[in-house]
Simulated assay, not measured.
Amino acid sequence: MASGRRSLPVAVLELLAALGMLLGLCALGATFVALPGRAMWAAAGVLVAACALVLSRWPDPRTTLGPANRVTLGRAVLVALVAGTLAAPVWAQHHAAWVAVVAGIALALDGVDGWVARRWRCASAFGARFDMELDAFLILVLCAHLLLMGKAGSWVLVIGAMRYGFVAAMRVWPWLDGPLPESGRRKLVCVWQVASLLLCLLPVVDATSAAVLLAAALGLLAWSFAVDVRWRYVNGRPEGKRGG
């Protein structure tokens, strides 16, 4: 006789497992570094929102996210934890090294999901977009931390907002939307900016030194975006709309 009960879709179970992982990390944080409750709740809110977005874009919740996307989901747990600490800025300033370590682990795992995707042949457009958007959000969160810590002025948010500005510009100029060629320059600039953000979080880096590092990161990022915009202008615009 059938019980009539149905288990949750596998993708939902994987997302719930991510929430469980966050709960465990929050418990460890509360035990060892007195992580405030408001930071935990904020982190949970960020991760729930991320899981909702994943579920809305995943084609079939009855199928697994796959090994590579599970690694990215694990990174999302760490990023949510770093983002949650923005709700406790005084605590974050006193535990800046802890914030930097967690963010650094999330960054270190960035290459793992790509390796897993190649190793198990499960690369997908969804996975690439998931990974890219997570990186962009982490960069914006780190910029916000530096602003709240007084390491930089509000201009530092431009580093984190540039990706979102580029996406917004696609709505005005559709020719900006489209694939870009593989670029070592783009990857190098990305590593430089994230490494600079992590370094500037550390207490040993004062505001003056942070300003120099972050200004260099912003300049390199602006240059890299300009190169990509130029490439899209030349290769993406309809022939009839190109300027003379």
Rank of each mutant, 00 (worst) to 15 (best):
T208Q: 13
V141H: 06
G111I: 01
C200L: 02
V205C: 00
G127H: 01
V82K: 07
L35W: 04
D177G: 09
T64N: 10
R186H: 12
G45R: 13
R185D: 13
G243P: 05
M162K: 11
W192M: 05
E182Y: 11
M132T: 04
P67M: 05
G153Y: 02
W120Q: 11
L47P: 00
R163N: 15
L218V: 14
M162R: 14
G184R: 13
G111S: 07
G66E: 04
L23W: 08
A226D: 11
H145G: 02
L86N: 06
R75Q: 13
A96Y: 08
L8W: 15
R38H: 10
S154N: 12
L109N: 10
G150K: 09
L134V: 05
V212C: 04
V112W: 11
G127Q: 06
D206Y: 03
V71A: 08
A216D: 04
L86P: 01
Q193I: 10
M170W: 12
G160Q: 02
A42W: 05
V79T: 09
V48M: 07
G37K: 06
A39Q: 06
A136V: 04
C26R: 13
L109K: 15
R57P: 00
W173F: 06
A92S: 14
C190F: 02
L55E: 05
L8S: 12
A217T: 10
D228G: 04
C51M: 10
L214Q: 01
A195P: 02
L218K: 15
M162W: 13
F137I: 04
L138H: 11
M149R: 03
V156E: 08
W175Q: 03
P238V: 07
G24F: 08
L55H: 01
R237M: 07
L73E: 00
E182N: 14
L134Y: 01
D131V: 02
G20Y: 08
K187Q: 12
T72I: 03
V79K: 02
L157H: 01
L28Q: 11
G45C: 13
V77Y: 00
A117E: 00
R230Q: 14
L86G: 01
S183H: 12
R237A: 09
A27Q: 15
L13T: 14
R171N: 14
V212R: 11
T63R: 15
L199P: 00
R75L: 08
W192R: 00
